[in-house]
Structures are given as C-alpha cells and as structure tokens.
Design a protein around this nucleic acid. Structure first.
Lengths: 233, 233
DNA sequence: ACGATTTTGTTCTCTCGTTCACAAGCTCCT
DNA sequence: AGGAGCTTGTGAACGAGAGAACAAAATCGT
C-alpha cells in the first residue's frame, strides 16, 4: 500500500527498522508461525526449511526467501531453532504486544467472531462488541456485553483500539467504517460484502464468503467443462 | 493452476471454451457482479468502465482488461449494458447453474454460515449440515437439520454435492477433508486454521480470520514505528 | 456525410512474486 | 586438521499482474 520512498540506502545501517517485507511474505508469516507453534508443542527443537515448508504447505525455496527478509536466523547445515524463529516471526508481525479490537455488528457472524478463541490466543483483545440495534445492547455474548454504537469514540480512545472488525450488513458497512475511522481506528477487517472507501492511512482487508464460493464455482465449472469435452472427443 | 498450452490459435474459433482467465481476474469478477447487481436494482441501463471500476474499487484499465478476457461485451463510446454484462459474468463464473454445498462442523461459525443469506441468493444451495457430535445431530439450524457425519457419502452422491465447507476445529479438518474428497467433493472452502493436503484435482481455498488480523497487526506496528521515528527525528 | 467526442479493447512497459540453482557456511566423522 | 555431507541464504531467470497510453470503433451534432 504505502511504500517508503527511499530505503535501499538505509538497508545496511538499520538492521531492525525499515525493511520492507513483500506483502506476499507477510501473508505467509502467520502460517509459518502456526506451524512453528505446533512443532514447539511437540518439543521439536530444530527444523529444516524443507520440513517447515511442508508443514506450512509451501515450497522450501520460498520459505527460505521469506525468512531471509527478516534476518539470518537459520544455521547452515542444521536448520532453524524452532522457538527462536517463532519469537522472531512473532516480533516481526507485532504479536509480542497486545492489540485491542472492536467488533461492530453482532449478528450471526458477529456472534461467531466474539466467541472465536483464535483472537485472544494471539494477542488480540476484544475491547468491545457494538451494535446499532437498541434491543441487542446489553445482551451478553462470549463473556462481553454489547455496547451501543454511540459509545464507539470513547471506547476506541480509552482502550486504544487500533483495529475494527465490521460484521454488519452491507448497507451499514460504509457508515460504520466512517465512524470507526473518525474514532481513530487505522485498520479495518471487513466481512460485509461492500467496497469500503477509506483514507490512505487506513488499511482495509476484506473477507467475503460468497466471493470465495464463486471462485470455487468457476473452477468447478471448468472441471465439468473439461470432462464434457474429453468425453465427447 | 492448470494452464492450457495453446489457446491463442483457438481464440477465434471457440469463443466460448478454453480461454484461461487469470486467477487475479477470477477473484475480481464476483466484485464486478455485485456492483452490476446494485446498478441493475437502481435501473441503471448502461455503465462505463470508469463508473463500474469506481463502484468495484479498482482501476478502470484493470476492469477493462479483466472484462476483455471474457469477450467483447462493451460498446465503444457508450459503455456496457448492465444486465447483459451481468449475465455474461454470471455465466462465466458458473452462477447460472445451482451448486450444492455441505457444511461440516456446526459450531459458532458453522451456525453463522448456515444462516448466511449470501449463499442461497447466488445459486449456492446448502444440501446438508453435518457434525460429528451425536448430541448436535438432529438439531435445527437455519431451517436445516444437522446430519451425522457418517451420512456424508450418501448425501454427496444423492444431491450431487461438489463443494464442501469445513468449519470444524483445526484438529478435525484434515480428516473431514479426506472424507469429503473420498465422497466425491472436488472443491473445499476451509475455515479451520490448518493446512490441508488434497489430490491435485481438488481445489482448496482457505479463509483464516486470525491470519487477516495478524496482517493488519503487522501494518499497524509499522505505522507506529514510523511515527516514533519521525517524531524523534 | 463527416468531423468531434466518447469510451472500449489492447499493446507495451514495469513491478512484484516465484522458482531454480548454487556458493557459503556449519557440523560431524575420521 | 581436513574432507564429506547437509542446509541455508541469495543471485538470476522467469512468469504473472498492474497500469499507462493509444488506436479502433461507436454515437452525436451539424
């Protein structure tokens, strides 16, 4: 998204800051992290790029290149120390600190998200659940009480919320997003089937179930078409 | 994924078959489709690439290139006929036919998916909800009754299910996936945080909430780091 | 009938990401 | 001490996708 203008010169000096890691690599780091956690739980001390790549479902060359963006944490002829690498990746992603998250729109999906254990276990703390429906405010979901959407500003400020999750209907998504942004949220995870417009300083990621299904449908159709053609040929 | 070896020569002859559309384009077609549906509901008859691109949140050149893979459905100087283009995209993705889907693992997320209206509205019919927990079997969710996992084979065969959705815990995902595949499912949408191994003929797409959050966290951290550096400089 | 105007379809270039292939470097064995 | 055997880290080739830019084609007004 936003790319630093000149960094090549700074590469050598600042080992820690300012390396821009390719977006595609960032998206894979959490997968590696998960694989490493599994290995660590099995008390595996060391892992080779080949093994780790297999566990993460990627090519080993790609894994090595990905890791090389973070630093040289492996040992040639040996492999990677599981716990050490795990910590380095976690630090790189920013999981060594806690992130406060608000979830807006507590319908079916919002319920599921509120109860999702994968949040807390990775340093994401649900600061609040919000809904615009007055009837739902006060209801308890997954150990938290639903707040009114109007409390958004104070919650974001007081709890230093930087990430907002939108699980409202599409019709409400843009307005909710605007309110999140004006409250100070700078990252948005959008589950609503809507295109969101935000300032350049805000990151948006989108998860869309029906799009995923449609992509699968396309490939299904293609497989079926291929079958027809080969059987008639 | 699978690329046809020679298609340029076949382009002219077979207008309908055998064009391999880039994966990145496929992923955007559903977005265009949604934008077109909205326009159609507003009784807009014609739309330019510029307008449609804005509605879909992409660059207009990219939109035109994407559409050009499907065929030449626009009129120079005028734009695209909304309903006509909508139909063409729907046909290309395969939404002119119905797809039967099974959802395995009816926990919090499974509930949300079962109630998700976006499935039915796009030609995806939920053929069955399945769970391995005997206590849950028989329970009604979103108008459907939960079946036992053992009924998978007969359901897949009888209802011609080609798409399976996995919303089980990670520990059960691979086994469920294997059963889906052996029952005849050829596309899998995986919500479990696990890497699935499948035959090459099976497509898998993965949706992982915690990975999305971790990607956002990385960018958040980066913004925060930048602030520190600029304020101390 | 014809030029002005609009908008598509496509070519070309550039950037980003993947994969290969191998030198560099570590350990272990003799 | 030195060589054999692994495994990492990376340079280079390759491929896919994004975006700019423009020629081709349609409409509209005169």
């Amino acid at each position: 998204m936003t790319t630093a203008p000149s960094r090549r010169s700074a590469r050598v000096r600042e080992e820690r800051f300012d390396r821009d890691i390719p977006e595609a690599t960032i998206a894979r780091l959490p997968v590696y992290l998960r694989a490493l956690t599994t290995l660590s739980e099995r008390h595996v001390g060391t892992v080779s790029s080949e093994e780790l790549a297999a566990a993460a479902g990627v090519n080993s060359a790609k894994l090595r290149k990905d890791l090389s963006y973070l630093g040289t944490y492996g040992t040639r002829g040996v492999g990677y120390d599981v716990d050490y690498l795990r910590f380095q990746i976690a630090r790189e992603i920013g999981l060594t600190q806690d992130w406060a998250v608000v979830i807006v729109g507590i319908g079916n999906l919002g319920h599921a998200l509120a109860n999702f254990s994968g949040f807390a276990s990775r340093g994401f703390r649900i600061a609040a659940l919000l809904d615009s429906d007055p009837d739902r405010v006060g209801e308890k979901v997954g150990g938290l009480t639903i707040s009114a959407l109007d409390d958004l500003d104070s919650i974001v400020v007081r709890q230093q919320v930087s990430i907002g999750v939108i699980s409202t209907p599409a019709s409400a998504a843009q307005e909710v997003c605007d309110r999140l942004v004006s409250a100070g949220v700078t990252s948005v995870l959008n589950f609503a089937p809507a295109v969101l417009t935000v300032p350049a300083s805000v990151d948006v990621r989108k998860v869309d179930l029906s799009i995923e299904l449609q992509i699968l449908a396309y490939h299904e159709q293609r497989k079926a078409l291929g079958d027809v053609r080969t059987s008639s040929a």
